[in-house]
Design a protein around this nucleic acid. Structure first.
Lengths: 199, 199
DNA sequence: GCGGCAAACTTGACAGTGACTAGATTGCCC
DNA sequence: GGGCAATCTAGTCACTGTCAAGTTTGCCGC
């Protein structure tokens, strides 16, 4: 009996790229039901394989989310690198951070829930370091990077864009901020390091 | 057979205040294992009752977290009200926000995971509204509340303290920010609406 | 005091889940 | 084309959330 994954690809005993398929299924399922609402067996069903197949590639459920988190940090680094090369300004780097959170919601939500995955996994730690360096680098363009408050300024910059992204994702922001998150993020990030609101 | 809840209170068929006991057990369990790592049956065991008892008070698992979220918003409102009465300044209001997140970690973590509970529950909506008004009120003290960017300033303020609290809780901040979250929060929040870092 | 009634709690059951084991299938390399 | 390791399946077990039915108890009117 030949089975089919989805409605397209003919399948045999070996899937071909089950790892990729499970990660994609996880991203979809998390977007639908949140990071806590997924099950390994459902991911297996979505990929068209038996219930225990994902376990062979990722060890356990946390392993799937670990791989997703690592992938997320790499995607974030890529997004930040592009923004850095085009403008290099702090505000646009922050906008890129928010854009990543919105476009890769599932990845973002997993990345900052270390209780759900193996946060000390080497691949995750390395990818997290890369993206962290990129994010923090952009703050030097607007503040004195050697000043005593340089570290505080970096954390403040990270906090404001991370907070905005988180609040946007949870739907906690007042109506009007929902339609165009990037413009809203630009306005919000612009308030940091600027004397006062223009109004 | 007489049973005992914990090691103190003699118990009979009726618990007395099972609702309170389950909520306390939930807060403890969430602090230990995260919001996704709890089980109703474990809460029942911690409270010393049968596995289905919590269901009668909260309906389902999401009901427990709904009650916890509502309680959290009320606790937050209380914390903000105290800070508002003592100083009324935006920065101290933000510090109070962070203090709440640190001291009531379990509540805070649930509150901003609407996929885990019934976010449209009337009690939650009401409590959320109360705390939101208090938080936003403090921003008017530092910016022009009638200006065109007033709404943006409020969201920026909320974002920076919420982001800092979230990052602190996930352990994502660089070492040195961990020991005294309130002082760090004060420094970070002080960067908003101020021309530039002092350094 | 006491009957009864509603709330609180227990017991038992069922489907779904994560994780483990053993076995079946297949790509691939020499 | 033979053999081997990787890949996947099938079966199982303890645990979970939720439901239905039964048991115990506080309490109110009399």
């Amino acid at each position: 009996m030949t089975r089919y994954a989805g409605a397209m690809t003919p399948r045999s005993y070996h899937h071909g790229d089950l790892r990729r398929a499970v990660l994609d299924a996880a991203a979809t399922a998390i977007t639908e039901h949140g990071p806590a609402g997924i099950s390994l067996r459902d991911l297996a069903r979505r990929a068209g394989v038996s219930h225990a197949a994902p376990g062979h590639h990722f060890g356990d459920k946390a392993g799937v989310l670990t791989a997703l988190a690592a992938e997320g940090y790499d995607l974030l680094a890529e997004t930040l690198r592009e923004a850095q090369q085009s403008t290099g300004q702090f505000v646009e780097l922050g906008v890129a951070y928010v854009r990543f959170a919105v476009e890769h919601r599932a990845h973002f939500e997993v990345m900052f829930r270390p209780d759900l995955y193996h946060a000390d996994d080497p691949a995750v730690v390395a990818a997290r370091g890369r993206s962290g360096d990129l994010l923090v680098g952009g703050v030097g363009s607007v503040t004195d990077p050697t000043g005593p408050d340089a570290e505080v300024a970096k954390v403040a910059a990270w906090s404001i864009v991370h907070g905005f992204a988180t609040l946007w994702l949870t739907g906690a922001l007042p109506p009007g901020f929902g339609e165009d998150p990037e413009s809203a993020a630009r306005a919000v990030a612009g308030m940091l390091f600027s004397k006062e609101p223009k109004g």
